[in-house]
């Protein structure tokens, strides 16, 4: 699903070049759940942005679903994101002036999907994320957990093969956080959607099949599910 080869990212700052990522390699299989961990400024969010085509690597190659995204132009990358990738953010990033159903249908509408189709997709997604009856609510009328579920529904609207989640539980309490992780895990298992999640939270990372540790721009360590110390916790979330 994802192949990252020799990827580096350098930012030119007034104080000199800053190497956010340096010569990294990574391979993610379809339907795999990956957690990326690391201290602040380690390069984990940069890696996620590169995977999503939000930014381009300085050197190296990124292939997602068979497409070398660093060779696509701006518009091609946007359309690729629209159809192949779903994003989930820490602070939900819902549009405050839109209702729940309108937020979920955002990419469908951007793709000029027929109203009827978009309505039925939204209905199904609301049911999937257990938010039936909230179609006409505005984000400000929902709890944090509910808002994040709307964001996940929005990410799923175009039936993407990949979900990139940036600290999806960072703003949630423990119970809501667990709900969201359970939902992501379910999607991964039942729908064969690949999930790449950046997190600070070790407990949250335990739900993943594999944990990638990033430090000072390098992928330094990988931990597979079998290596979990707390197998019980991981199983309970799964």
């Amino acid at each position: 699903m994802i192949t990252v080869s020799n990827v580096s990212k350098v930012y030119s700052l007034e104080s000199g070049d800053f190497h956010a990522l340096q010569d990294n390699h990574l391979h993610v299989r379809k339907g795999e759940f990956i957690a990326i961990m690391g201290p602040s400024g380690s390069g984990k969010s940069t890696l996620l942005q590169l995977l999503g085509g939000l930014d381009l690597p300085t050197t190296g190659q990124i292939v997602v679903d068979g497409v070398e995204i660093n060779t696509l132009n701006e518009k091609e990358r946007t359309l690729f994101r629209r159809t192949k990738i779903g994003f989930v953010f820490q602070n939900y990033q819902l549009l405050p002036m839109m209702t729940v159903e309108e937020n979920i249908a955002l990419s469908l509408n951007a793709n000029n999907a027929p109203k009827a189709k978009s309505k039925s997709v939204v209905k199904q997604l609301l049911s999937d994320v257990n938010l039936q009856g909230k179609e006409l609510a505005f984000p400000s009328q929902l709890s944090g957990g509910q808002q994040q579920r709307v964001a996940i529904a929005r990410a799923l609207a175009m039936k993407p093969g990949l979900i990139l989640a940036d600290e999806p539980t960072g703003n949630l309490d423990q119970k809501n956080g667990e709900d969201i992780l359970r939902l992501l895990s379910k999607l991964c298992k039942e729908e064969q959607i690949t999930v790449v999640m950046v997190t600070h939270d070790r407990q949250a990372a335990l739900v993943a099949d594999r944990i990638i540790h990033v430090r000072d721009g390098f992928i330094v360590e990988e931990t597979h599910k079998g290596g979990y110390r707390n197998e019980e916790m991981a199983d309970s979330l799964a």
Binding site: G52, L54, E74, K75, T78, L79, R81, R82, T83, G86, F87, F89, Q93, L95, L106, S107, A110, N111, R154, A155, M158
Partner: peptide, 16 residues
């Protein structure tokens, strides 16, 4: 700005 960035992230094109 973040809202626009989010829209771009979920596939809204520059043209849109």
């Amino acid at each position: 700005v973040r809202e626009i960035a989010m829209m771009r992230a979920v596939g809204v094109t520059r043209g849109q």
